[in-house]
Computed example of a mutant assay.
Amino acid sequence: MTPTSTSGADRCNNLALRKAARYLGATYDRALAPVGLRGTQFSILQRLGAHGEMTISTLADTIAMDRTTMASNLKPLAREGLVTVEPSATDRRARVAAITPDGRSRLQAALPLWNAVQVRFEESFGTDEAARLRTSLTAVLDTGFQPWAE
């Protein structure tokens, strides 16, 4: 193996992760399209539905996304009336996102579509392997990098 061989690309963690993320992400996006959601939007609604209102920064942290990207992802959801984004009552610098009743309805409509992809993936990939994959990917978040540090 020489330093110029393509095996370096074959060992690139970033490329492998992004390829898999695009592949699986597009699968979820396609499945959720009938209810007008993308995978990221579903995840945002799911988090807000489970945890109630959250600051944009906290919501971004729970999804491992930078705050600016989260704010951009919230805009179409707010335009559709699925979430609200308001100034915090306790910290004027912070903005709080909350799911609306329409957002909860859309989330409920999306859940069976999301679940169908979950089941199909686990049947194809393996239930135990999918659980190990989620555990490994969660562990990646604890490797000490600070991609969004200011």
Score class of each variant (00 low, 15 high):
residue 130 A to M: 06
residue 116 A to E: 09
residue 45 L to K: 10
residue 36 G to I: 00
residue 55 T to M: 04
residue 88 S to I: 01
residue 82 L to Y: 09
residue 108 Q to A: 14
residue 40 T to C: 02
residue 67 R to W: 03
residue 91 D to E: 11
residue 60 A to S: 13
residue 46 Q to N: 14
residue 71 A to Q: 15
residue 78 A to D: 10
residue 136 S to R: 15
residue 137 L to W: 14
residue 135 T to C: 01
residue 114 W to F: 11
residue 5 S to V: 01
residue 123 E to Q: 14
residue 87 P to Y: 00
residue 23 Y to H: 11
residue 146 Q to C: 06
residue 9 A to N: 13
residue 77 L to G: 04
residue 118 Q to R: 15
residue 6 T to Y: 04
residue 64 A to M: 05
residue 10 D to Q: 15
residue 73 N to K: 12
residue 134 R to W: 10
residue 20 A to I: 10
residue 134 R to G: 09
residue 47 R to G: 01
residue 116 A to R: 05
residue 82 L to P: 01
residue 30 R to N: 06
residue 92 R to N: 13
residue 81 G to F: 04
residue 26 A to K: 10
residue 123 E to G: 05
residue 97 A to Y: 02
residue 149 A to E: 12
residue 39 G to M: 06
residue 95 R to C: 02
residue 120 R to T: 04
residue 124 S to T: 14
residue 34 P to K: 06
residue 115 N to R: 13
residue 38 R to V: 02
residue 105 S to P: 08
residue 4 T to E: 11
residue 83 V to C: 04
residue 123 E to A: 06
residue 13 N to I: 08
residue 27 T to C: 02
residue 32 L to V: 00
residue 38 R to G: 08
residue 22 R to V: 12
residue 114 W to N: 08
residue 23 Y to L: 10
residue 146 Q to P: 05
residue 41 Q to E: 15
residue 137 L to I: 12
residue 122 E to I: 00
residue 64 A to Q: 06
residue 55 T to R: 07
residue 129 E to I: 03
residue 23 Y to F: 10
residue 45 L to M: 08
residue 86 E to G: 01
residue 52 G to N: 05
residue 145 F to S: 12
residue 114 W to A: 06
residue 24 L to A: 03
residue 23 Y to G: 02
residue 70 M to E: 12
residue 38 R to P: 00
residue 135 T to E: 12
residue 143 T to C: 05
residue 9 A to V: 15
residue 32 L to W: 03
residue 113 L to Q: 04
residue 30 R to G: 03
residue 9 A to M: 14
residue 147 P to Y: 00
residue 122 E to K: 07
residue 108 Q to R: 15
residue 148 W to P: 01
residue 58 T to K: 14
residue 137 L to N: 14
residue 149 A to L: 09
residue 98 A to R: 12
residue 63 I to S: 00
residue 5 S to M: 02
residue 26 A to T: 05
residue 17 L to P: 03
residue 15 L to K: 12
residue 128 D to W: 09
residue 139 A to I: 04
residue 58 T to N: 11
residue 35 V to M: 05
residue 130 A to S: 06
residue 57 S to H: 14
residue 55 T to K: 09
residue 136 S to L: 14
residue 126 G to A: 05
residue 39 G to H: 11
residue 41 Q to T: 08
